[in-house]
């Protein structure tokens, strides 16, 4: 029992613990022993005034141990638990929670509907897909290519969704997130793309659409598209024509096309983009969560090309562009200014 009391740890309410032992307890400790000494680890992981003073005092009292302390601290900081990369099984969850379409009916029809539903229910159970829409989504950071029933090509950026009617009676799709369209076989029926905010009538071939945080932008690559909001129409007819809908206003500008389409090669071409807008992209398309110590950084404008394929390259590029320390913990990026 005796040795379990030495050293004795005391906790005072919710504060960190205080030890009754002195620096002399550690006079004979080797580097390895320090690495498994609880109070040493607590200091490395959660330094505060008390434990920092304690270990500084130790180094002063036993200067021959200072190097061991520094080395043990450096190693302890790298200590990690071996991890595995799990499979993504979102589909299984989605199957369980899939929202059923809501139908609004008055009371009489409700009664009738319940009766009919009871009969239909049995039949429904055996149907594998009761949904009339096809919905295809991409994960964070995934660039997904797909071909629509009319053989038009769509490239989805990360965390984006495209939805269209299963029987494809109209050439019409709904977009949430970002996509590049290459529309084939134009005919009088046209091809329509909807975002939450605007509608696009496609008259020509290829264009980019991005719909995030209440703002939709359309950039024409080739051909012609007609962009419509509640009360206005804009025709985009020259490559680089851009329509932006934001805060209930639809405006037209001219931009370099490649700045808006390079994401398909998992590259970001930034041209005087604010750090705030860039961080939003990292959040919306890649699922990163950015934390930063200095919010004034957000207004800074940056330019350049960033390769998003290699995470380490991205972190290094961020550090250089922002002139800050950048570390990654899981999906969180922590930016601390020097």
């Amino acid at each position: 029992m005796g040795h379990f009391l030495s050293p004795v740890f005391f906790y005072i309410q919710n504060s960190a613990f205080i030890m009754t032992h002195s620096v002399h307890n550690y006079s004979n400790y080797t580097m390895h022993q320090l690495l498994t000494a609880p109070y040493f680890l607590e200091w490395v992981r959660f330094p505060d005034a008390t434990n920092t003073a304690f270990w500084e005092d130790f180094k002063k009292t036993y200067p021959q141990k200072a190097e061991d302390v520094n080395r043990a601290a450096a190693i302890a900081r790298t200590m990690y638990v071996v991890k595995e990369k799990p499979a993504m099984l979102w589909e299984n969850i989605y199957k369980e929670i899939k929202p059923r379409s809501t139908i609004r009916l008055n009371i009489i029809w409700k009664a009738a509907a319940i009766f009919i539903l009871a009969i239909v229910a049995t039949w429904m159970i055996f149907r594998t897909n009761t949904d009339n829409n096809i919905e295809i989504a991409s994960h964070f950071g995934e660039v997904k290519k797909l071909i629509l029933p009319d053989s038009s090509e769509v490239t989805l950026n990360g965390n984006s969704t495209i939805r269209y009617s299963k029987n494809w009676d109209k050439r019409e799709v709904w977009i949430n997130g970002e996509a590049f369209f290459n529309v084939k076989h134009l005919n009088p029926d046209g091809f329509k793309v909807h975002s939450e905010e605007i509608d696009i009538n496609v008259l020509g071939t290829s264009f980019n659409i991005r719909s995030r945080r209440g703002t939709t932008s359309v950039v024409l690559n080739s051909g012609k598209v007609l962009v419509t909001d509640e009360d206005k129409q804009l025709l985009l007819s020259a490559p680089g024509d851009m329509a932006v809908y934001s805060k209930k206003e639809l405006v037209k500008k001219q931009v370099p096309v490649s700045n808006y389409t390079s994401w398909q090669q998992q590259k970001l071409q930034l041209d005087q983009v604010t750090v705030a807008a860039f961080f939003e992209m990292l959040e919306d398309d890649w699922g990163y969560n950015v934390q930063l110590s200095d919010s004034s950084l957000l207004q800074k404008k940056i330019s350049g090309e960033i390769d998003m394929k290699d995470k380490q390259v991205l972190m290094d590029a961020l550090a250089v562009i922002l002139n800050a320390n950048v570390t990654q913990q899981g999906s969180t990026i922590i930016v601390t200014t020097n």
Binding site: K83, W90, I93, I97, A137, F140, G287, G330
Partner: peptide, 23 residues
């Protein structure tokens, strides 16, 4: 608000943490 995509994003974010803890 009942947005399925938010749930999917949370899943994407936490799958690894929960899996490694569970293991």
């Amino acid at each position: 608000r009942g947005n399925v995509q938010s749930l999917e994003a949370l899943y994407t974010q936490y799958n690894e943490l929960l899996y490694n803890y569970g293991k």
